[in-house]
Structure formats: C-alpha cells, structure tokens
Design a protein around this nucleic acid. Sequence first.
DNA 1: CGCGGTATTGACCAGTCTCAATCACGGTGG
DNA 2: CCACCGTGATTGAGACTGGTCAATACCGCG
Lengths: 244, 244
Amino acid sequence: MADVSIALAKWLARLRLRSTLTSAECDAVLGLPGSLEVIPAGRDFVKLGEVVDRSCLVLSGIAGRFSQGRDGIRLTTALHIPGDMADLHSVVLPKAASALMALGETQIYRVPHEAIREVGDMHPALERAFWRDCTVDGAILSQWSMTNSRLQGDGRIAHLLAEMSVRVGVSSADDQMHYPFPLTQQQIGEATNMTPVHVNRMLRGLRDKGLVEIRARRVHIMDWRGLCAVGEFDPIYLHLRGAE
Amino acid sequence: MADVSIALAKWLARLRLRSTLTSAECDAVLGLPGSLEVIPAGRDFVKLGEVVDRSCLVLSGIAGRFSQGRDGIRLTTALHIPGDMADLHSVVLPKAASALMALGETQIYRVPHEAIREVGDMHPALERAFWRDCTVDGAILSQWSMTNSRLQGDGRIAHLLAEMSVRVGVSSADDQMHYPFPLTQQQIGEATNMTPVHVNRMLRGLRDKGLVEIRARRVHIMDWRGLCAVGEFDPIYLHLRGAE
DNA sequence: CGCGGTATTGACCAGTCTCAATCACGGTGG
DNA sequence: CCACCGTGATTGAGACTGGTCAATACCGCG
C-alpha cells in the first residue's frame, strides 16, 4: 500500500532528473494537495472527451493511456508506472484526447489543476519543469511510434519489455531480472499493435530464444543484451539518468 | 517570398487559437528576434542528437520531423507548414531526439531559446501557451500513431492528405480543393509507414475512386467527404477553431 | 466442480514488402 | 531542336508478416 508522500516524492525525484529545482520548489511539489482513489482493474478513470480539472499521479499498479478509433479499437499510447503524473498535459489541455485505464488494480492521487497552476505561477522553474516533463512524454511516444512502425512483432514486444524494465528501475546487473507486469496478451497487443494471437506467438519466440518470459504476471528477463538487440532498445530517449 | 513579421504573426495567430493573450503578450511574440535561412530541398537543418539553442519557425515550404532507427530508415513524426514553430519543444529539451528536414525548398526563421525563455519569464501566460502548443503537437502525434497503426494503406494516406488540407486552411466549401504538396511518394511513405511502391498503388486506388489526386506537386481533393470517410478523419484533435 | 477469462496452437487468408523492369518528365549539353 | 540522363512514378510477380477464424487447454475463483 503506497503512501501519498512517497508518491509525491517519487514524482519529484523524476522531475529532478531532468530539471534543477530549489528546495522551495521541491517543497511546493511535495505539498501538492489531492485525493486518493483506488481503481479496480480494467476501469477507465479518465474517459475520452471528458473535461478534467485534476491530474492523476499513479501510486501503485499500471495505468494505460489510450486513443480510440471510431470502431472502438484501442491503441495504447503510453504506460504509466508509480511515480508518473499520467496526464500532466491536461493542465493545459483539459479536454482529454485520450482515456486512462487501470491495468490491474491501480491507486491514484488526483491533484487539482488549480494547485498545479498555482505552484507553476509561484515558481517559473517548476512550470518549465512541467513543460519539460510533458515533452519527454512526447519523446517517448515518438519512440513508440518508431518502434511499432519499423520493427516486427518480436522486436516491438522486446522493446516494450526492455523499456519497462528500465523505467521501473530493475538493475541490469541482476542475473535474473524480473518485475511485475499485469498486462494480458490482448493488452500487450494494444500497445504494440498486434493481435493477441500474434502476441502469443511472438512471446513464444522470445521465450524459445531464451530472452524473456512472462510468468505469473511478471516479466523475467533471461538475456538483457539479447533482448535489447532484438528490440533495438537504447534508453537515451527516456532522458533518465542512471539508466544503463 | 514570405516576410518575417508575417510569419511571426501567423505563429501568434496559431497560439491565440488555443490561448488567450493580452496585447502586451502578443507584442512580445511579434518582437521575437531571429535570423532568416533558406534551406534547399532535402537538407537537414536540425540533425539527430545535435544540441540546439534556437527554435525554427517555418516561413515557407514544408519541413518534416524524423526519428531514425539504427538501420538509418526514417519515420516522419510530423510535418510542419508555414507558421509552425517546428521545434518549440527544444526550448526545454535542447538535445534533438528527432531531426528536421526541408521537403522542398524551405525558408525558416531561427529564434534563440534565450529570447523565448525571456518572454516566457516575463509573461507566464505565454510560457503556458508554449507548453500548450507542445502538448497539441503531442496530440497530433498520438493521432498519427493511431492512424498509422489501425488503418490500412489507403486510409493512412487519405488521413494525411485530409489533415494537411485542414491545416493549410483550404476551405471545404471549395468545389475543387487543392494545395501545394511537394512530397515524393517515398516521403509520403516515410510519414505513413509504407514502401514507395505501395504508396503508389494506394494513390492510384484513391484516384480511381475519385477521391484525391496528386498532380504537379499539388493535392487535388475531388471528394472531401469520401476522403474523410476513408481516412476516418475528424479534425478535433488539431484543436483548431474555424476548421470544419 | 464448473465457469469465464486468458493462453495456446493450427490452418488459411490478406495486406504489404521485395525485387525488378519500364515509363514519364524536366534539365543539360551539343 | 534533339539526344541523353537522372529522378521519381508505375506496374507486375512472388514472398512473407501478421490477421482471421476456430478449436482446445489452462487457471483462478466462487
């Protein structure tokens, strides 16, 4: 059971990876108000087209961001892990162009836009840090776009699993890297643009090659180098220090 | 031959479509310094990985934003038309994660980040308008992602041509809509994730159906409704007022 | 113990790519 | 004015990735 102050601290840590903040600015972030919510697996907590006045900080679980075609088929455009402010962009664009959904039970902390704008006005460096964070999100999306367009099935999945591993902070030093990953094969397909059937085949391929395996809602990486090679993964685009 | 003040005015107009600005703020934008450059067709003017200290406002022509896989194959992640600040995001993330290239001869006006930050510090509403604009760029990318993933060849091209038509401001009232479009079929393929060969076949299909045609570096739309249907195009994601 | 959702596998089909040849057209030099 | 050339457009044939349909196996849960 995650704690609010820990979550805000995690978000702050992420901001500080990319922006230099004074202690007053840090305190302002840590003091952000909000309300706690627990979202059951599979539930949308921001709906398409909805006008929101709060942003969602993920405390535990995983949240997916979706676009939707008119046929109702979804495409995942981002996965958010604990410490991510999933829709910081809604502060400047309150009408949601994409939905947010809990993949597995997810705990979120909703922070009023009003409060975020206030600390932004008070501390211009914070406002810029927010802008920067949104821009990194864009860079990640751009990378996904690239990956999902140019790589084939196995590479797309390999890239996704490698990226998530780095983002959750699993050390590449570990011999047996593993981390929780509650997505169904259907949902993996929504993120990598494949049929669940094909996801299954590709996963088997990766397993047979001794690269990764998903077992009991967990990713187990057997061969980090090999996985990165297949997925053409290079973590620079994440703009994270300490990664790789 | 476009003029600098007209270009800044165009950019300002775009900002004002999404943000409310005071006249002082408008003047600040119109007064932004910079230097003019003419880029010949096919030349990169921002290179991958380069650290830039100026942002590029497109005055004439078309610029493409690219990501690149390790095999050197490019994927276009955005097309920028006159009035677009192509890499406003570089103000907060100066290390270019994507390259910018002139598609056809392009005139740009490079504005120092320093100046942009200055007006941002002076006018918080402007800073927020910049942030918002970057966010809209992200929304467009998200839409492209969706389109290129979920639609097939003809739909992807139809969507692209419809989007560009709205963005350049061609009125849907015109019986014969047309606008300049200097991309080769190869470049269209880089934006829609297809082989040039397949682009050609899809274009023929669209022409045969009486929807669009590309002739002499110009797009001619014969059937707007039909085009939108095939491309599942709906311009809301552009966040433009006055567009359909 | 049975049920619903998920995973797995097979057979077949469709969209797209690859390779390769040909064509159209604008620019160049004689 | 015309032959030559290079780039981009067009078309065809065959290969391959990934989608569709469908059946079966697995597994947690009430």
